[in-house]
Design a protein around this nucleic acid. Structure first.
Lengths: 190, 190
DNA sequence: GCTAACTGCGTCACAACTGTTGCATATTGT
DNA sequence: ACAATATGCAACAGTTGTGACGCAGTTAGC
């Protein structure tokens, strides 16, 4: 649910939907108030086509939030958060997220409607993120008394800041900096 | 410049300007696309009065950016960034900023027009912020090889995250958490 | 107390965005 | 090739925001 998919879309229609969503991420990222027309133009389709696929602006936003959250969930999954050593998982997840930056930028800004699919997915991501942090704490990588929810928020903030300022750059190097900063801060190395 | 102040405003007019700016911070913080009417209502004045003081929306935004930047600069100054011990200065500055959160929230979002007064003030704040970090590094509080610009960005991000999530709460405790996280991260305490 | 400045209110023209429709044309799937 | 589906284009009404008026009534300052 969420997709207005009563019956299977034709190939070209599906292409349009993809183009619109991708363009919307780009355009709305740098101007959250951009018009449907601007989005349509960026997607290379007519405005009416956008309206044909998404009843209104909010429907588009919600679909966008859902796909973004799904992309993020995939990025997390790919890091094998439950089995890989915590440090490895954190690094991989971070690098993955840096590559789907559009999704992250979107998920960070738009607080999804409570009860929406995107909200559920976001909560799921948060949960899994904390789980990784717990495993890291069990290994002594994180202080025993740390507030993991705060740690998670700091982690998100570091990701957000990196995406805003270093949009391009080697994902691995950026991920290393994020994880290092998260675990050790700016203080002197031992 | 920036203020449309050809000649001294009458007392009530100045009051209006203040009310408008304060309301604008509040309103625009939670909806950057809010209408002039909404801002006027929040300020307790008529929409025409807003237009009388600020020619157009952008003029209001710029004036807002300037006053916000000035508030921040004052908050930094009050921390005696050049003379107080770095740790003390960082703590005080942080606590101060947490109290003028409106200004910070605004300065963080709205990238000011290049060349505007706000941009200059913002750069000045950045500069002084890095200066404090340099003093902290000289005292061994920050790793000798650290990229101070990255440290500054992390500091800003921690402030932003705290303001978004813990808008209320003891400024001193929140400041302590920010400084501690910045310098030591989430890792185990020595 | 008088003047100049300020404010609220109503009204106006103008521009931009939204959402919908009808129709001609092009693409897809079978 | 044919039918179903998609698309672009043009046009429409409706809404919302902007910026500018004039005017009557209020407030500040000398």
């Amino acid at each position: 649910m969420g997709e207005a998919t009563v019956r299977p879309l034709r190939a070209d229609a599906e292409r349009s939907v993809r183009a619109i969503l991708e363009a919307a991420v780009r355009v709305l990222a740098e101007d959250p108030g951009a018009s449907m027309d601007a989005i349509a133009a960026a997607a290379g389709v007519a405005r009416t086509t956008v309206h044909r696929r998404f009843a209104n602006r909010q429907a588009l936003i919600e679909a966008l939030a859902s796909t973004a959250a799904r992309q993020l969930a995939d990025a997390v999954d790919d890091g094998r958060p439950d089995t890989a050593p915590p440090l490895v998982a954190m690094h991989r997840i971070t690098a993955n997220v840096l590559q789907v930056k559009g999704a992250w930028a979107f998920a960070l800004e738009l607080t999804p409607e409570p009860g929406s699919e995107a909200a559920a997915l976001q909560q799921d991501i948060d949960r899994r993120c904390v789980a990784v942090l717990e495993r890291a704490r069990a290994e002594g990588l994180i202080d025993a008394g740390a507030d993991l929810d705060w740690v998670r928020r700091v982690y998100y903030a570091l990701l957000g800041e990196t995406l805003r300022g270093d949009a391009d750059g080697d994902p691995d190097a950026l991920a290393a900096r994020i994880v290092d900063t998260l675990l050790r801060g700016a203080g002197p190395r031992a």
